Amino acid sequence: MESSARKAFNDNFTPKKYQVFLDALNKGLKEPIAFRVAETPVFLSDDFRDKLLVAGEDIINVILQPNFKELTERAIPEKWNVANENDHPHFIALDFGVCKDEHGNIVPKLIELQGFPSLYGFQIHLADTYQKAFEIPDNQTIYFNHLGRAVYIDLLKKTIIGSHHPEEVVLMDVNAHEQKTSVDFYITQKLIGTPVISLEELIEQNGKLYYESRGAYKPIKRIYNRLIFDELDGDPDIFNKVVDIRKPLEVEWITHPAWFYRISKFTMPFLNGDYVPRTQFLHEVKQIPADLDKYVLKPLFSFAGQGVIIDVKKGDIENIKDPENWILQEKVNYEPVLQAPDGGVKIEIRLLYLWPDGDTKPTLAINLARLSRGKMIGVRYNKDFDWVGGTVAFMRK
C-alpha cells in the first residue's frame, strides 16, 4: 500500500473529522446509511494497482472466451432460469484480498467474482465525501482507465439506460426501498434518472411490464436488475403473489440474472494465474489434500458467505452428498497491511467493470473496498471493531 499517503492521512485523522465525514455522507439522503463505513479509504501503491490490473485482465480474458457460456451452463439453477438471456454481462465485480506471497511481496488474490451490479452510484458519493472531509489531494483518484467523474457517469448511463429514456428503465429489487444498499439505488436515481421499484410493484399486461407513477402506468423497456434470487428462495409461493419474471416478457435485462450464476464461484476452477487460488470442483478432486488446513470448502449456490467451511476436516468432505455443487479452494490469508492507529487491518478490493451494449469488452471503471479485523470480511465478523467496514481505494492519477 502507498505509505506516504497513509502517513499523511493518519497524522491528520481525528474522531471529530470522522464524525463530520459521516454527517456529510448522510446529508440529503432519504435514510441514514444502513451499513458501517470505515474511518479511512485505502491508498494503493502504483505497484499494487498494476498487479490488480493484470489480475483482472487475466480473468476477463476467460470470460471473453467463445465457449464461456458452454462451460458455465450448469451454473444456473433450473428454477431460476430466466427467459431472454443476452450475450454478455453488463457488470462484472472481482473481489481480491490483499495478501503476502511466499517471497514476502504484497499481492492481490482472487476471493470471489460476480456478474452482477455493485455500488456503482454510492462509491462516487463516498469518494467525493472522503476527498473533501479529509482533504485528500486531487492527484488521487478512484477511477481506472483515465476515467473522471463525468466520463464515468456517462459510461454508467450508457450501460444501464442505453438508447432508452431513463423513465423506461427501472432499478428493481425485492423490497427495494428497505434494502441495506438502497442508498446506492437512490444515488443512482439522482445520477441517471432511473426510478427505483420493488419486485412487488411490477405490473404485467399481455407480456409487457409497467410500473405506476402519479396514477399512470409507465412502460418498462429495461430492468436494471439488483435482485438476487437467493432472497426469494424462502418463499415457494412468491410468483403467485408477484409477476413471474422468469417467463418470456418484452423487457431487456441489465444484466440478465443468468450472469449472476455464470460469473460466480462456479467460474473459479476455470481460472489460472499468480493471483488466483487453486480451485477444484469437489467431485473432480482425485485425492483429498493432506494439508486441509490450507483449504476452504464453499457451496456453489449460496450467497454472502453462507455455508462456507473455513476449518475443513476430511469428514466434512466425505459427508457432502452433492460434491458437484461444491468447490475446494486454496485458502487465501489476508495480510493486515493497512495501518490503523492501533494496528494492522485487512483489505479486500473489488474491481468494478461496466460493459454497455455495443462495446467489444468490459471497461474497468471504479472500485469498492472493505476493511476487516475479523476472521472474515463482512459485517457479522466485524462487530465491535473500528477502522472496519465499507470504503474505497484511491490511487495516483
Rank of each mutant, 00 (worst) to 15 (best):
K27Q: 14
A38R: 01
P66H: 04
F68G: 09
K69W: 08
V62N: 03
T40E: 10
N67A: 11
F68L: 05
T40C: 04
L22V: 05
K30C: 07
P66R: 07
A24E: 15
V54P: 11
N67D: 14
E39P: 02
P66E: 04
A34N: 09
L64G: 01
F48T: 00
D47R: 14
T72S: 14
V62H: 00
F48N: 00
G56Y: 03
R74H: 14
L64M: 14
E57T: 14
F48S: 00
N26A: 04
L53Y: 11
A34G: 04
V54S: 11
R74V: 06
E70M: 10
E39G: 02
E31G: 08
A55Q: 00
D23K: 14
N67F: 03
E57V: 04
E70Y: 08
D46C: 03
T40K: 03
A55F: 06
L29D: 02
N61D: 14
K27D: 14
F68R: 03
E57S: 15
V54Q: 12
L22N: 04
D47T: 15
V54K: 13
I33P: 06
Q19W: 03
I59C: 05
T40D: 02
A24W: 06
L52P: 08
F68W: 10
V20G: 12
E31D: 10
D58E: 14
S45K: 01
N67K: 12
Q19D: 12
F21H: 11
F43A: 00
V54A: 13
N61L: 14
K69T: 11
F35Y: 10
Q19K: 04
